[in-house]
Each structure stands twice: as structure tokens, then as C-alpha cells.
Simulated scan of single mutants.
Amino acid sequence: MDKTSRPAIFDGHNDVLLKLHRAGGLRASESFLSGRDGAIDLPSAKTGGFAGGFFAVYVPSPTDLEFKFDEMTKDRYDLPLPDPIDWEDAFPVVMAQAAILFDLEARGALVVCKSASDIRTALKNGKMAAIFHIEGAEAIDPDFHTLDVLYQAGLRSIGPVWSRTTIFGHGVPFRYPSTGDIGPGLTDHGLRLVRKCDALNIMLDLSHLNEAGFWDVARHSTKPLVATHSNAHAICPHSRNLTDKQLAAICESDGMVGLNFAVAFLREDGKMLADVPLEQMLRHLDHLIEHVGEDRVGFGSDYDGAVVPEALTSCAGLPDLRHAMAKHGYDDALMTKLCHGNWLRVLEKTWGH
């Protein structure tokens, strides 16, 4: 690994499992090792110094992506929330994507990590470290039988919602300009989920929760508040981004924010257009560091799940981001914190080891 690929980047969110699922499931796993048409694979990771991160298992809605992306290039937009997905429909999709993750581990492509020490060992040995994460809890039943089994399989992080309603709470639509103060927060099942995850030391991801849900978690969880892939609302007033008041709560809890590379959450105009200079990402990083502190900021790229800046369409381009950060004035110690150290810190505090 050359100098521009250091320090290694451990990332808060990617959707590569969904892409592999759509490309053929287990039959597509080989492309992750040899090279694929996407943002993350082993050759690109080696080039870019991408050390792993949260591998999301996500059940997609039947959304017209072309319509969605077209709407998000307008000056204002408000996409309707997708319909809820029943447990019976979500569960087999979650199982199929989790099987891909464990197949990649069996092939030696990555290591599924259940502790911060597992991640440190993987980083030391040059192995890609993966956290089994679920984005949207549609596959979790109200009795938590599914959650208990998935925990035993390695699940260590969960987002109660994506941008649609679940039995646990309410997400935010893709709306610009807007705050996340949209609708009610967690349901009674959602409050039970918070307590259950706290008891199991499963990290709760707040990135898609609306503001009411965010504050419900803040009141009821004993763990650090973590948004794995969210940006600064003060710079881009999108419903998905975090207000300074939310950032203050994350700071107070000694939590974490992962900078989302999705251009609609980076650009001041909220548009899904890829011509975003790296300097715009640094503006968000500076704001996040100012409001939550340099020990509580990292990356949450949303790779393989979003339109990202042209310079970073693959994780092989991450040396350009490091170069921009160093040129901006971030010293070696801060670079290490932002690239992976802060994720290790908050995961150790959340998981207990």
C-alpha cells in the first residue's frame, strides 16, 4: 500500500450486498474478488486503501430509480415514502444477502467482525473487515426471534428504518429543502427495539430516522448516538441531514457521524448531480468536526447505493480524498482518526469490546 493509500479507510455504510444480490446472488460473489462494475471490490479496495466497513443488508422497494433520480435534479422535490414491506417479504431477501456476506468470508474476501478487536486484527493482517448491518428492520419480528438469531450469526448494527415506515418507527422522505422533523417517531415496538439492542450491544444507526425518532433514541438508549451515513443540514438543508442540535446530542453522547458521499446530501442545492468538488466534502467534514469534535467523525460513503462525486466513483479513488484532506490541513493524527480510528473508538464503546 503506497503513501496515498494510508491511513486505511474503514467506512460506515455500503450497499454492495444488494448489488451482488441483484447481479445473481452467490454466483456474483466471484466478481467481488476479481473485479466488478461497481464501487467496491478487492482490486479497487487494494488500490484505494479501503479496509472495509458496515456491509448493509437492505430490502429494496419497487422504486423507479430513473424517476427518482430525475426528480432529485430539480430545485425542489418531495418523493413519496415507499409502501411498508411485510416481514414475510423482507425475511428471505435479508437471508439471501446475509448468505452472500458469509460466502465472501468463506472465499477469503473479507472477515465478518463482531468486535473492535476483530477489526483491528483484520486491519493488521490486511484483510477486509466487514460489519453485518441491517438497514431497515422489516425482517425483525415484534418478538425479536429473528434479531436473536441474526445476532448469533454476527449482526452487530441495525437501522430501525430506511425511508419508509416499519413497525418500529418512521423514516424521512427524500425531500429538499426540508428538515427531518417529519411525522411521529418510534412506536412502542421501536422503544422495545432500542432496549433490546442496548442489552445485546447492537449498534443503532440513526441515519434514516426522522427527528422525532432520533430524539426518542436519544432519550431511551444508553449507548452513543451514531449516524453511519449523514451530513450537515446547515450546509445542505436536506431532510436526510443532521441539524446542529442533533449534532450537539451526538457529541454529548460521545457518538459518531459518518460523512455520506451521496451528492444530494453534499450539495447546497440538494441535487443528485455528480459534479461535486472534493472541497464540498471538506466543508461538511469541517462543520461536523466543529460541532461533534475530531474524535466523532468518519466516513459513511453509501458506496454502491448512491450517486457520489465523480472523483470517487470507486473506492480506488480514495487516495484523491486523502490528498485533498492533507492539502486542506488535516495532520496525520486527525487523518487517522477520520479514516478509521474514530469508528474503532465508538464501536468499542458501543459493543463493549
Rank of each mutant, 00 (worst) to 15 (best):
Arg240His: 05
Ala248Ser: 15
Ala51Cys: 13
Ala153Trp: 14
Met335Cys: 11
Ala129Pro: 12
Leu206Phe: 08
Lys19Trp: 05
Gly24Gln: 07
Lys245Phe: 01
Ala109Trp: 06
Val149Glu: 15
Gln97Asp: 00
Asp86Ile: 11
Thr47Gly: 08
Pro309Cys: 08
Gly317Pro: 00
Ile140Phe: 09
His233Trp: 15
Leu259Ile: 15
Leu110Val: 07
Met335Ile: 05
Asp181Glu: 11
Asn201Phe: 04
Ile131Gln: 02
Lys245Thr: 10
Leu278Ala: 00
Leu191Val: 06
Cys236Leu: 13
Ser61Ala: 13
Pro319Gln: 01
Asp198His: 10
Tyr58Trp: 15
Asp37Leu: 11
Asp70Lys: 11
Val16Trp: 08
Asp269Arg: 06
Ala234Cys: 12
Asn342Asp: 01
Leu18Gln: 12
Leu110Thr: 04
Gly300Glu: 00
Asp254Pro: 09
Ala249Pro: 03
Cys315Thr: 15
His233Ala: 09
Arg322Gly: 03
Ala232Phe: 07
Lys3Thr: 13
Gln280Ser: 14
Gly25Asp: 12
Arg267Pro: 10
Arg283Phe: 04
Gly38Gln: 05
Leu42Glu: 11
His229Gly: 05
Trp343Ser: 07
Ile40Tyr: 15
Asp78Ile: 00
Ser163Glu: 03
Thr121Tyr: 04
Phe168Gly: 01
Trp343Pro: 10
Glu211Ile: 00
Val59Leu: 08
Thr73Ile: 05
Asp269His: 06
His220Arg: 07
Leu204Ala: 05
His133Arg: 14
Pro84Phe: 03
Leu204Cys: 07
Tyr303Val: 02
Asp78His: 13
Thr350Ile: 12
Leu193Ala: 09
Asn201Ala: 10
His233Asp: 06
Leu193Pro: 12
Ala28Glu: 13
Ala311Gln: 14
Arg195Cys: 11
Ser115Asn: 09
Met72Thr: 04
Leu338Gly: 03
Leu17Val: 02
Pro237Glu: 06
Leu204Asn: 04
Glu105Phe: 13
Gly159Phe: 00
Phe32Leu: 06
Leu193Tyr: 10
Asp198Cys: 07
Leu318Pro: 00
Ala90Thr: 07
Val292Gln: 02
Asp332Asn: 01
Leu347His: 04
His145Thr: 13
Pro319Ala: 02
Gly190Pro: 03
Ala264Phe: 15
Pro184Phe: 08
Thr336His: 12
Gly185Glu: 01
Leu318Arg: 00
Leu65His: 10
Pro82Asn: 08
Arg296Val: 01
Ala212Ser: 14
Asp11Thr: 01
Glu66Ala: 15
Asp64Ile: 06
Ala326Cys: 03
Gln97Ser: 07
Ala248Val: 07
Gly136Val: 05
Cys113Arg: 15
Val16Gly: 05
His233Pro: 00
Ser221Tyr: 04
Val59Arg: 09
Val217Pro: 03
His13Gly: 08
Met1His: 14
Gly305Pro: 09
Asp331Trp: 09
Asp269Lys: 04
